[in-house]
Design a binder for these strands. Sequence first.
DNA 1: GTCTATACCGTGATAGAC
DNA 2: GTCTATCACGGTATAGAC
Lengths: 211, 211
Amino acid sequence: MSSGSTPDLDIAVDPGRRMSSDERRQQILVAALAVFGTRGYDGATTDEVARAAGVSQPYVVRLFGSKENLFLATIEEALARLLTAFREATVDADAETIGKRVGQAYVDLLSVRGLHQTLANAYLMGSHPVIGPAARRGFAAVWRFFRDDMGLDADRAREFLAEGMLISTMIGLRLVDDYGSDPEITELFRSCFPTDLPHILDVVPRGTDRW
Amino acid sequence: MSSGSTPDLDIAVDPGRRMSSDERRQQILVAALAVFGTRGYDGATTDEVARAAGVSQPYVVRLFGSKENLFLATIEEALARLLTAFREATVDADAETIGKRVGQAYVDLLSVRGLHQTLANAYLMGSHPVIGPAARRGFAAVWRFFRDDMGLDADRAREFLAEGMLISTMIGLRLVDDYGSDPEITELFRSCFPTDLPHILDVVPRGTDRW
DNA sequence: GTCTATACCGTGATAGAC
DNA sequence: GTCTATCACGGTATAGAC
């Protein structure tokens, strides 16, 4: 049951309702993004995911088979949303605006709690025998999008990747939380994102996801 | 005792020898960099750190007080080495070469097993009540170095940070392991590091640190 | 300075009812 | 489709000897 210690991660729509397996899976995946994003793979518990989704812990395991499988499914979900958003950003965009559009899409995805952080966590698990390969495939898929669908040259693609990693890092660090209170963090953040910052501050939920 | 399951992480110089507290601390920190770098904070166990350092698990806890404290000390160690290497790279460097020099220093540090990965893991723990603030301080310190000691403007500093995060990501993903065998990874890696790659391949230990 | 033994607890997974 | 009960394991930390 969903109750108690982490109310801010609770995303259950209608806790008691009986729903289709697919609906539940989707709901659990959204919860998993938030939990894995905050705690990382090993730090997250299937119980916390379950509570965030408003179901019981054994049911989460039942639906996905194992914690490892749940994480794999969560990565897939994150990548699917990412690439879909990117693709949508490229329609009706000329070579002039396409970069800004896709960058914007990346920042907009910050509103999906834990999406970037979950991917960032996966990217750090390269030496895991099953998660590692999946993470590499996912990363390669994003790169392929930059190269093939966006038609970027190697240099621009690298810049895109690098910029994305920097944004992810600053989000994972939760620099946002100290923005405005700690003068140095404020300056660091400002100087790194002279243009995007207002939008980031607008779209990122601050002070939530607390440990 | 150091034995068995993860021989490649064993860095004990002389397992049986009795040494000063400070020597042991240092030895354990080097082991901790490798273990935390591979497994992350929650995935790592104090026992694996102990075995890698050639001491008993309770002794690691005894010396550092707790796993959390050990991790904080490990981050400090990583940052100290990073900033020291950066500083050394800036002496006798003019405005023309300083960028290349510091970048080179960053890549060279890949030879310290787990250093970049440990920092990357810390950077993802922004919402942890005690590790989060420490990680933010560390990140800010690096940024301060770019700004004050290297005298970079905001734009160049951001580029440096971003490039660093990209390198960290690719290392954490262990793209190196598939380099040469997987054609797509090979191309991705090549196109991202047209110049540095030979050096990276030279300095990064491949196929070790396996799960 | 360093070990062995061990207490204790959190977590993933299974069994089985409804 | 979903829960409750429960088990087995692994991991941190403590006690205390050498």
